[in-house]
C-alpha cells in the first residue's frame, strides 16, 4: 500500500491505496464521488474527465498515487452554494444531454476549454476542442450550443462576482 494525500473538491483527503488504483477508482470507490464516470476505460471517451491541478485529464489513465499532493476537482465540486455552475445550467437549458452518461466529462472538459480559450467560443473551436469526449446520444449539436452558452454564462458570473 502507498499513502496518497490530495485535495478533492476543496477537502483534504489521505488514504492508503494499492498503487495500481486508478484515480477514477479512487474517486468513485474510496470517496464515493460517483459523478465521474468510467466509459471506455481506455482514455478515449472522456466520461472520466476531472481537473488535476486545474487541467482536464482522463482519470482512468492516471494512478491515484500520481495525484499525490495535487488538487482535484470533479463534477461534484463545481456547483456553489446550491446553485448549478453556469456550464451545468447551460447543459440543462440547452438539452445538452440525453442519457447523461458522458455529461460530467463533457462539462469538466467544457470548463477547461473556457479556461484555456476564453468566453467567446465559436462552433468550430468547441467542436475541435471536444474531440476527446464522445457522446453516443445527441449528435453533439446541443452540446456545442450548451458549451457556447455556458462560456457566456461563466463570463457573466465573473462580472457579477466582480460587481459584488
Amino acid at each position: 500500500m502507498t499513502t496518497v494525500s490530495l485535495t478533492v473538491n476543496g477537502q483534504s483527503v489521505t488514504a492508503d491505496v494499492d498503487p495500481r488504483t486508478l484515480l477514477v477508482q479512487f474517486l468513485r470507490d474510496n470517496l464515493r464521488l460517483t459523478g465521474t464516470h468510467v466509459g471506455c476505460d481506455t482514455s478515449q471517451c472522456g466520461a472520466c474527465v476531472v481537473h488535476l491541478n486545474g487541467h482536464a485529464v482522463k482519470s482512468c489513465t492516471v494512478l491515484a498515487v500520481q495525484a499525490d499532493s495535487s488538487v482535484v476537482t470533479t463534477i461534484e465540486g463545481i456547483a456553489e452554494g446550491g446553485e448549478l455552475h453556469p456550464m451545468q445550467a447551460a447543459f440543462r437549458e440547452h438539452h445538452g444531454l440525453q442519457c447523461g452518461y458522458c455529461t460530467p466529462g463533457m462539462i469538466m472538459s467544457a470548463i477547461d476549454i473556457v479556461n484555456r480559450k476564453g468566453h467567446a467560443l465559436d462552433e468550430q473551436t468547441i467542436r475541435a476542442e471536444l474531440e476527446g469526449n464522445l457522446c453516443r446520444c445527441t449528435g453533439y449539436h446541443n452540446i456545442v450550443k450548451a458549451v457556447a452558452a455556458g462560456a457566456q454564462g461563466m463570463a457573466q458570473s465573473l462580472l457579477r462576482q466582480a460587481a459584488e
Binding site: G46, A56, E131, G132
Partner: peptide, 8 residues
C-alpha cells in the same frame, strides 16, 4: 491525441 492526452 486530444486535449486531455496532451495534458498528461
Amino acid at each position: 491525441g486530444d486535449p486531455h492526452v496532451r495534458n498528461r
